[in-house]
């Protein structure tokens, strides 16, 4: 049956992992059209790590969900490795920690194994290879010892790493993270960045929403977003006070600069 077929569209080797062209996401309120995202165009290269910054309500989550295929655009073109996003299951989306039901009766290992669902296929159980991949993914983010813990027993940083391990287990080519650093202390944040650095060897492209502007220097490029793309490029070049004023309005306080 077509429902149970697992087809990942081929990745054309001349295509980029992510390409957006004039994307609009709009909603109607009291007869007026509002844009959640307007005229968004950019590309991500293989293995490139991009930070997404902007004020609350700038559309960072909307953009990530759009790319993941959870939301649909009203206008524009969105291609993953040269074809429609609905044809791909190589995209991993790491949700905000507040959106996960941590009391759910699953262990760390169970959650990471969920990333293998497509590889295992319908009506089948995890094979030896799947178990090895899960183990390797857990080891890579440094939580192998926690494999049999229920997920509520973990610290915030460890919980975030479970979802990154799940992304690794599904062998993602495009990793989307929605504010994974929110609420984490500095050591836990550093661990996440070390993991991202380690992922460079896999050529995984990363798009990550962050709140702390100063962290954007760790990325190859930064997108400054406020419904539209205000600026895109190396963080030290685009985070000018003029651009920041445009993105954040009068609300920005540049601490420690």
């Amino acid at each position: 049956m077509f429902l149970f077929k697992n087809q990942e569209a081929p990745h054309r080797h001349d295509s980029v992992p992510l390409e957006l062209e004039q994307i609009d996401v709009s909603y109607q309120e009291l007869g007026n059209v509002h844009y959640a995202l307007h005229n968004i165009s950019f590309q991500a290269k293989k293995g490139e790590q991009i930070a997404l910054v902007g004020p609350n309500g700038a559309g960072k989550s909307t953009l990530l969900k759009l790319i993941a295929g959870i939301l649909k655009a009203d206008k524009g073109k969105l291609l993953i490795f040269g074809s429609a996003t609905s044809k791909h299951n190589c995209i991993a989306y790491v949700p905000q920690r507040s959106q996960v039901d941590w009391s759910f009766p699953v262990t760390v290992e169970d959650v990471v194994m969920m990333g293998r669902t497509r590889h295992i296929g319908f009506f089948k159980r995890a094979k030896k290879k799947d178990k090895e991949v899960v183990k390797k993914s857990l080891d890579r983010v440094g939580i192998l010892k926690l494999a049999h813990k229920q997920i509520a027993e973990l610290s915030g940083g460890q919980q975030q790493r479970v979802f990154i391990a799940r992304a690794l287990a599904l062998e993602t080519q495009l990793l989307l993270l929605d504010e994974p650093l929110a609420g984490l202390d500095i050591p836990s944040q550093k661990i996440i960045f070390d993991i991202l650095e380690d992922l460079r060897t896999d050529d995984v492209s990363i798009l990550m929403a962050i709140h702390d502007l100063s962290l954007s220097e760790k990325f190859d490029r930064t997108i400054l977003l406020n419904k539209e793309i205000i600026a895109i490029g190396k963080s030290d070049q685009i985070l000018s006070s003029e651009n920041l004023l445009k993105a954040f309005g009068g609300k920005v306080v540049i601490a420690g600069n």
Binding site: I70, N89, F104, R118
Partner: peptide, 16 residues
């Protein structure tokens, strides 16, 4: 189990 825990994962994996 998957759609009960995390329906969004189900969507990104393009499960029915």
């Amino acid at each position: 189990l998957l759609i009960s825990f995390d329906e969004i994962l189900g969507i990104t994996l393009r499960l029915p």
